[in-house]
Design a binder for these strands. Structure first.
Length: 632
RNA sequence: GCCUGGAUAGCUCAGUCGGUUAGAGCACGUCCUUGGUAAGGACGAGGUCGCCGGUUCGACUCCGGCUCCAGGCUCCA
């Protein structure tokens, strides 16, 4: 007999019994023995602590979805025997499987595959773990012409390979899995997509099927409903409805036309940025949109980035539409000799750059070809790095919180220690820079993920990512060291000791791009902007024509007080107009009838909250003023 | 750029198995209505059915190319 500890109790069981012999509840799909995830069919051979895993935890979901992908692969192999298996992992929301097929799957195929999956689930086929030597596994998959599996196994370091079998279907897999196919209760195949083998453009394109599954039907319905709800927050939909911006086919993809309401929103965001940056010691500059090709040759962009640049002839020369703001800022820095006394010099610009992004990557405001970067370059001495990074992160945090973002992902990208030669700059520079970044992250209290090998060749960086309505991550803020441009442009400062020394350059952006940031912001607020951001803050509505004059005077006073106010006195009933304005998500309505005229007050209705009753105009101004701070 | 879908009025969508005048709701305009906290009524205007070619007596519909859009992949110096 051996002892196992389960749910705080110690139980004695026979050695070699399976977990599933002990636990009959089908809610549990896997277990942890001494912390290690295992199948329910695992035999217990020694004293151990046992935990049961169900769908409610992240590990449980991963196992459930991964098993679902196997079921899908079984169905596909049944219907399309010639399809070769590639990989089929669980992802954050569901699972996918990649197949190599002669003709890619169409959306019509999904229905057939779903039907076959249902049959497989009904048969409740067990998942069986089989372990074998590497060569045996290679032979097995070679025998079934599963060349991708063979490639995968050949890439593994382990000499022991685990395979999961369901009847005559076998798949290379670390596991664990649910005990049998019947555990997959409620599922849906969501979409098909092309995906390159190993994510490499030069490799074959596979056909990927995405799906989702849950133990309960209700959970699937909730999931699908949530996706539908999220689509209502889509900035592209809200952008049209709220008349914020357009992208015109006839004018070109990825190029944003800001309508008056979007333009005023953007202007507020820009004004706030300029005000905060001036206060933080940045100097604003403005640089042209085009520059001679040779400037970009000097910066290195011409060699590294030419595919993304718009190049045009001007007389006998080539000019380039700027893809970056850096060279411009460097020219201004270099315009005269700089003293250590001036450093740090911080140049900031809301600079619109143009990049030839691939058509397939464009996405509303979140991925465009005309990108307005809230760019700044910090020129400083090496010993100023730490303080400057901290200041950048402090400012970033202030901005994020001001716009109501408290939850975002922070990534620290450093070089690949195995391939140091791929990178520009000395070891000392890299180490010092990384120390500065880590130190700043710790001081600000940002938790972050360290991404080894994710740094760009010219320096380490910190990226901050925001999420859209569908939880997709988009890079916003970034702080990047640059060991390349100072060398290429030979930019220096005169130090205390009378020596010219190389200046450090730090690129940084907080919004990332105005376009992307506003896209995220629209989805974050679902179009109901706090009053300080709302393109229209107040709509004045006389109930009948008799109040028109009073309404005009109120409108004038609102505008004089600096509010973005409009009049709505169209020939519709007040209920109709209230609905109209409510739907347009304007924070405040002022409803004016005879009572208000006589008492010299306004009747206030707040978006989403309803009637606040009558108040003096002055009190409304105080109320709005109290909300102007942002975030709510 | 690659894969799978898609494009009909400003918006959301119906429709046409190839046939003469392509519909609805919302929005918009005019008129009636002057209504107290989420949709009053009548009438009206609005479409090269994404673009270019081909097949056909005839194409919005079928075929090809292109553009753009969606979801992915890749890229994101």
């Amino acid at each position: 007999m051996i002892k196992i500890r389960l749910n705080g109790k110690t139980v004695e069981i026979e050695r070699g019994k399976r977990i599933s012999d002990q636990v009959k509840d089908r809610k549990y799909i896997a277990a942890r023995i001494n912390g290690e995830l295992v199948d329910m069919a695992t035999k217990i051979t020694e004293d151990s602590s046992l935990e049961l895993v169900d769908f409610s935890c992240d590990d449980g979901k991963k196992i459930y979805w991964h098993s679902s992908s196997h079921v899908m692969a079984m169905a596909v192999k049944k219907l399309f025997p010639e399809a070769k298996l590639a990989i089929g992992p669980a992802i954050d929301q569901g699972f996918y499987y990649d197949f190599d097929t002669k003709t890619p799957f169409s959306t019509d195929d999904l229905t057939r595959i779903e039907a076959e999956m249902r049959r497989i689930i009904e048969q409740d086929i067990p998942f069986e773990r089989v372990e074998m030597e590497k060569q045996a596994a290679i032979d097995l998959f070679d025998g079934t012409s599963e060349s991708f599996k063979v490639q995968l196994i050949e890439g593994l370091d382990d000499e022991n390979i685990s395979i999961y079998r369901n009847g005559d279907f076998a798949d290379l897999c670390r596991g664990p899995h649910v005990p049998s196919t019947g555990y997959i209760r409620s599922f849906k195949l969501l979409s098909v997509a092309g995906a390159y083998w190993r994510g490499d453009v030069n490799e074959v394109m596979l056909s990927r099927i995405y799906g989702i599954s849950f133990p309960e039907v209700d959970e699937l319905n909730d999931f699908l409903e949530k996706v539908e709800e999220a689509k209502k927050r889509d900035h592209r939909k809200l952008g049209t409805e709220l008349e914020l911006f357009s992208i015109f086919e006839e004018a070109g993809a990825g190029l944003v036309y800001w309508h008056p309401k979007g333009a005023v929103l953007r202007r507020i965001i820009e004004d706030y940025w300029i005000q905060e940056h001036l206060a933080a010691g940045y100097k604003i500059n403005i640089t042209p949109h085009i520059a001679r090709g040779q400037l970009w040759q000097k910066s290195g962009h011409y060699d590294f980035y030419i595919d993304n640049m718009y190049v045009m002839p001007v007389e006998n020369e080539e000019y380039v539409l700027k893809p970056m703001n850096c060279p411009g800022h460097i020219l201004i820095y270099k315009s005269r000799v700089r003293s250590y006394r001036e450093l740090p010099i911080k140049y900031a610009e809301l600079g619109t750059v143009y990049r030839k992004e691939l058509s397939g990557t464009l996405h509303g405001l979140l991925r465009v070809r005309g990108i307005t970067i809230d760019d700044a370059h910090i020129f400083c001495q090496p010993e100023q790095i730490d303080d400057e990074i901290v200041k950048v992160l402090e400012l970033t945090k202030k901005f994020m919180n001001h716009f109501g973002f408290y939850d975002f992902r922070v990534e620290l990208s450093v070089r690949d220690p195995k391939e140091k030669t791929k990178y520009m700059g000395t070891d000392e520079e890299w180490e010092r820079a990384e120390r500065g970044l880590v130190n700043a992250l710790d001081r600000i209290g940002f938790s972050y993920t360290r991404m080894e090998g994710e740094a760009v060749f010219y320096g380490p960086k910190i990226d901050i990512k925001l999420v859209d309505a569908l939880d997709r991550k988009w890079q916003a803020a970034t702080v990047q060291f640059d060991f390349n441009l100072p060398r290429r442009f030979d930019i220096e400062y005169m130090d205390k000791d009378g020596q010219h020394k190389k200046v450090m350059v730090i690129h940084r952006a907080i919004y990332g791009s105005l376009e992307r940031f506003i896209g995220c912001l629209i989805e974050h607020y679902a179009g109901s902007f706090p009053v300080w951001l709302a393109p229209v803050q107040v709509v004045v509505m006389p109930i009948t024509d008799k109040e028109n004059k009073y309404a005009e005077s109120i409108l004038k006073k609102c505008r004089k007080a600096g509010l973005r106010a409009e009049l709505n006195n169209k020939s519709e009933k007040i209920n109709y107009r209230i609905r109209e304005v409510e739907v347009s998500k304007v924070p405040y309505m002022l409803i004016l009838g005879q009572r208000e005229v006589v008492d010299k007050v306004v009747s206030v209705r707040k978006h989403k909250e309803g009637n606040l009753g009558q108040m003096k105009l002055k009190d409304l101004f105080h109320l709005i003023e109290s909300e102007q701070g942002g975030a709510n």
